[in-house]
Design a protein around this nucleic acid. Structure first.
Lengths: 218, 218
DNA sequence: GTCTATATCTCGATAGAC
DNA sequence: GTCTATCGAGATATAGAC
């Protein structure tokens, strides 16, 4: 029985953005070609310039914003409803390590590679990355504040966790090892612990906790 | 008076490598063209393939090794002869922030951008980056060990400092602000202090120390 | 809005005179 | 070893039928 070509569930524009974000995550901005993007997204070439008339740079900036929002949602998934923020932090780093292993060290930060590439060459894209990072850190700051950490220290802790995560992503991908992520996670957990439970007299090492139910991959 | 064309002080091969390393540091691997490299290095185009017969990938890998060795020397400059390692760590992060400001956030890690770009696309270059990072961390580990920190903890501290530095580089370049580097430096100093002077009863915050004489830019 | 064909440019790489 | 000319492939971008 002949089947009519159906309307795709995901609109063309969204498929293009999704493919762009995925490819930029793995290879960066410059190495990601428009031809490859239309191949992966199963979109007609002309649609790229229909939806993004300013070309590759506009598409790249939009893809950064999309990836940024997705990561906001991911972060929220770890913190919302977690027993406490320290558990959420531990869980987040553990899962990041697991995703690295499962994807052969391809899926790390969706923005970092591009951010470094364009920091000195495209103000448009640099600003998109800057806003995405700011949004992640602002969200994390609120979660720490909600646990009773003062505003200034909460933001410092969020920035610290971000830097540890990104530094670990770089070293894990380069070494093809998750050991750096484990070290980063331990320090992030310790810092979060020290700020959220300053009264604890004896910092007894916590046994590893069982993780919550599976969630969307990072 | 007619002047004879003089032999350049720096050999062609070295000029090519230097230009490649500099351009890759600012824009990454893919965005750095061979034409641009020969322009900057004032070298004939054919010399690139004379000295690097396997082409751009070989040149990129060599440039990573060169940049890696330069950074080894830079690290040594901070630790050798420093009053103690905690001062060296503080000094290093302070100087990194200063270099970022002075170069309008162009000169950060000479390898990180390329490492992320090629982690999933060029095993040759990934390995070069992995060895460079390993060398930096091995050196730092030795400095911490020399201050009495046990081997395992010394290496953990070196990895931690590396990740903080790299995470800060990313955020500083993207935000065009050195605030993240200052936060990273404070945590790195605290971690180094806690491990090298565990007996200190009251961790009184140290006043900022005067920096040692100027040294080569990072 | 969708899609194909193609224009134009720049890339990495090569050949060969000197 | 130096340098120029040029190749073929790939890139981004555009034109225009449907």
């Amino acid at each position: 029985m002949p089947r009519r070509k159906t309307t795709p569930a995901v609109p063309t524009r969204d498929r293009i953005l999704e493919a762009t974000a995925q490819l930029m995550r793995r290879k960066g901005y410059t190495a990601t070609g428009l031809k490859e993007i239309v191949n992966v997204s199963q979109a007609p070439f002309g649609s790229v310039y229909h939806f993004f008339p300013e070309g590759k740079e506009q598409l790249g900036a939009e893809a950064i914003r999309v990836a940024g929002r997705q990561y906001n949602a991911l972060v929220a998934g770890f913190f919302d409803g977690a027993p406490d923020v320290v558990d959420a932090v531990r869980d987040f780093f553990d899962t990041a390590a697991e995703v690295l292993r499962q994807t052969d060290y391809e899926d790390a930060c969706p923005i970092a590679t591009v951010a470094l590439e364009v920091a000195s060459t495209s103000e448009t894209m640099r600003e998109a990355a800057a806003e995405a990072f700011e949004s992640w850190i602002t969200d994390a700051t609120r979660y720490f504040e909600a646990s009773g950490v003062g505003s200034d220290r909460a933001r410092e802790l969020a920035v610290l966790a971000f830097m540890l995560l990104e530094g670990a992503f770089l070293l894990c991908r380069t070494w093809k090892s998750t050991e750096p992520m484990e070290i980063a996670g331990r320090f992030a957990v310790r810092a979060a612990h020290d700020l959220t439970q300053p009264e604890a007299s004896s910092p007894v090492p916590q046994p590893p906790r069982r993780r919550r139910a599976a969630r969307a991959a990072q």
